[in-house]
Design a protein around this nucleic acid. Structure first.
Lengths: 204, 204
DNA sequence: ACCTGAACACCGTTCAAGT
DNA sequence: ACCTGAACACCGTTCAAGT
C-alpha cells in the first residue's frame, strides 16, 4: 500500500499499473490479486491512505466552531495535495474504510453544532466535500500542466478562442495562477458564511 | 467526435480506448492521431462537446439575476449528467474550446452584476464550478455503483466499519440515495445566499 | 495463505508507405 | 490531407501449479 503511494508520488496516477506496482513490490503481477480485488479496489485503499495522513487529534469535537470546520476542510485539501493526483484518487471512490469514515464522522459532529437549523449537517458535509475535491482536482490538473509546454499552448488557445471578450480569458488564467491557498479559503468562507449567519447573527 | 460520445454513453469512459473508437469509426487506430494528438486531446474535445449541448439562448445576460446564475449551474450539471461519466470527462480537462469558453463567459457576465463587492466574480465562478463538477462526479460514481452488487457490499462495509457512530453511517447513505436534484439545488443556495446577502440585504 | 509462470485478450503510439 | 499495415512496448486478469 505504501509502495503504491510511493509509486504514484514519483510517477503519477496514470502511470500506476498493476504490473509496475508488482515489480516495485518485487512480486509477480498475479500475486497482487491476493491483496486487492482489482484496480478499483487498489484505488480505494489508496484513497483511504490519503485520509489516514490527516491528523485530527487536536480538533476538539466537544467544542465545535466554524474554524474547526474550516480546519477540517483545509486538512482534507492538504492531504490530497500531498499526494500526486490525490484529488482524482479520492474523487468518487467511495472508500468506506476507517480513515475516510473517521474524517466524515468528526466533520459531521462539528457540523451538527454549527449548521443553521434549516439545513442538514449531512447535506452541508456533502457540499463541503464536493467543493474541496472539485477544487483540488482542478488545482492538481493545473499543477501537472504548468511548467510543461502544454500549458503555454493552452493559454494561447484560451486567448485565441475567447476573442470576443478578452478580459474574461485573462480572468480565467489569473484565477488559476493566483494564490490558490487564499482562493480555497475564500471559497470556504463563501460557503460557510451563508450557512451560519442565521444562527450566529439572528435578525434583531 | 459524436462517435466517441456514443461509445462512452453505452460503454462508459473507462471502456473508451483509441482502438475501440477506431473500429467504431471504421478506421485504423493510427488514423485517429490525425484528428487528436492523443487520448487527453480526445477527452478535451469530448468535454467541450458536453458544454456544447447547453442552450444559453434564453438567458438574458443584460438582465442578470441570482436565478440566472443558478440556471447556468443547473444546466451545467444537466449537461454532464446527460453523458455517462460526464463529470469525470469535464473535471480538470481545461478545455479552452469554444463551447466551454462560451459558458464561462456568460456565467462571468452574470456574476459580475450579482457578486457582493468584496468578492471577485471570477473567484465565485471557480467555486461554483468546483462545486458542480465535484457534485456530479460523486453522483455519477453512485449511479454507476448502485444497482450492481458492489453497491450492496459497500453499504455493508460502511455499516460495519462505522460501528462507533452508527447514525452517521446511515446519514452518509441517506445523502446519496436521497433526492439529488434538491440536494444540488440546496447546495447552490448555500453558496449563493452567503454571497449576495451583502448586496441585497445591506445592514440597515 | 501466498506466490510463480504462463497465458489470454487487449492497450497507446509511431511511422514508413500508400492514395 | 488522410489512411493502412505493421510493429513496439506495454496493459489487467486468470488460473493451474507450486510452497
Amino acid at each position: 500500500m505504501a509502495l503504491a503511494h510511493d509509486y504514484v508520488r514519483s510517477n503519477g496516477l496514470d502511470a500506476l499499473t498493476m504490473r509496475r506496482l508488482a515489480v516495485a513490490a518485487d512480486v509477480t503481477p498475479g500475486a497482487l490479486y491476493k491483496h486487492f480485488r482489482d484496480r478499483k479496489d487498489l484505488q480505494r485503499a489508496m484513497s483511504d491512505a490519503i485520509y489516514a495522513t490527516i491528523d485530527l487529534s487536536d480538533i476538539d469535537t466537544a467544542n465545535p466552531s466554524i474554524d474547526n470546520v474550516k480546519t477540517c476542510c483545509e486538512r482534507m485539501r492538504r492531504a490530497m495535495l500531498a499526494f500526486r493526483d490525490g484529488g482524482r484518487i479520492v474523487a468518487g471512490s467511495y472508500a468506506p474504510l476507517s480513515a475516510t469514515l473517521n474524517l466524515s464522522a468528526t466533520l459531521m459532529t462539528l457540523l451538527h453544532a454549527v449548521t443553521a437549523p434549516e439545513h442538514s449537517p449531512g447535506q452541508l458535509a456533502a457540499v463541503l466535500r464536493s467543493y474541496t475535491t472539485g477544487f483540488v482536482i482542478d488545482e492538481q490538473a493545473y499543477l501537472e500542466l504548468s511548467g510543461t509546454d502544454e500549458w503555454d499552448s493552452l493559454v494561447q488557445q484560451i486567448a485565441a478562442n475567447g476573442h470576443h471578450r478578452p478580459t474574461e480569458a485573462d480572468d480565467l488564467i489569473a484565477i488559476l495562477t493566483g494564490d490558490r491557498n487564499r482562493r480555497f479559503d475564500t471559497g470556504l468562507d463563501m460557503i460557510l458564511t451563508g450557512l451560519v449567519q442565521a444562527s450566529l447573527a439572528p435578525p434583531t
